[in-house]
């Protein structure tokens, strides 16, 4: 392909990326060095915002909460998504129906899904699940206001919302695993567990990597789920980085756009670090191809 053709084909897309993503990003970076209110020009304050972020214990807590949530959810998604995908893939006539049913949580907007979820756990709004759990175990668990129970609820919600996607991608990946290979392994006398671990899983490594990639991207930016599910996230240490940004730059008439932008920049850096292995993979592969 010639340079000119490349420019014609990719140009509009690049233009949109530069105009609608890079320029706003530049503005965010600019703001991160300013003290600024909405609608009025800011004044340069150097690294003050970054200093404030790093000296605010809330920021540290938010980073730790977010990263741990991301790692746990991603691990669960990979394992549960794989198991579920294998089960679904083994179905015959029922497969499209089961797939369709399982996809439902994925197609519901997260904020809506999380609200539905909150009605299962919040006793003030019915709380059918917390009620049943209390009936069965006798334990009165404060799902909305205590750190760990609330973390369980939030993680369950995020997993609930993303598991269908993980499963779907892995089901798609399983279509590419040849029956011959499985048959060969069986003839060699491999147990079911071995068959999965040493034949199927390695052959869909790329697919699992893709699931991990998307999961990391999305869970690091958890926000919607916390709005209905963790009304006192700040006090119980369940504030995600995105929620922290929202709280300082938007909520309660808060106007600290500079600080919010500085945290944005730091969050982008964190995301890039988490994605580094994937970025290197893409770079290597594209150069090779």
């Amino acid at each position: 392909m010639r340079r000119r053709e490349f420019a014609v084909l990719a140009g509009p897309s690049i233009l949109v990326m530069v105009g609608l993503l890079v320029l706003p990003l530049v503005r965010t970076i600019e703001w991160s060095f300013q003290k600024v209110d909405y609608g009025s020009p800011g004044s340069f304050v150097g690294l003050d915002n970054y200093q404030e972020a790093f000296s605010d214990p809330r920021f540290g807590k938010a980073v730790i909460f977010t990263v741990i949530l991301t790692l746990i959810v991603t691990a669960v998604l990979l394992v549960a998504g794989y198991v579920l995908a294998v089960l679904v893939n083994g179905l015959h006539r029922a497969k499209p129906y089961v797939l369709g049913l399982l996809l439902v949580p994925y197609v519901i907007p997260q904020i809506v899904g999380a609200t539905m979820f909150s009605w299962l756990f919040n006793p003030n709004y019915g709380g059918v699940l917390s009620y049943l759990i209390e009936k069965l175990t006798g334990a009165h668990i404060l799902w909305m206001s205590e750190t760990w129970p609330n973390r369980v609820v939030v993680s369950l919600d995020v997993i609930w919302a993303m598991l269908p996607f993980a499963m779907l991608i892995i089901v798609a990946g399983l279509q590419g695993v040849s029956d011959e290979m499985i048959e060969a392994a069986r003839i060699d006398g491999a147990s079911t567990l071995r068959l999965h671990l040493s034949v199927i899983v390695p052959s869909i490594r790329g697919v699992l990597g893709f699931v991990a990639l998307i999961s990391i991207m999305d869970v690091v930016r958890t926000f919607d789920a916390l709005v209905p599910l963790s009304p006192q996230a700040v006090q119980i240490g369940n504030e995600s980085i995105m929620l922290y940004i929202y709280n300082v730059a938007f909520q309660n008439g808060g106007q600290n756009l500079g600080l919010g932008s500085a945290i944005d920049v730091l969050l982008i850096l964190l995301i890039v670090v988490l994605l580094l292995p994937f970025i290197r993979g893409v770079a290597k592969e594209t150069r090779a191809g």
């Binding site: 006793p123 003030n124 404060l142």
Partner: peptide
């Protein structure tokens, strides 16, 4: 008060009264 009272805004308190809790 309900142990989760620090998660209650006014509508939530209304709901407590509606529910008889």
């Amino acid at each position: 008060m309900d142990p989760q009272v620090t998660t209650f805004d006014q509508p939530a308190v209304q709901q407590q009264m509606y529910n008889g809790s």
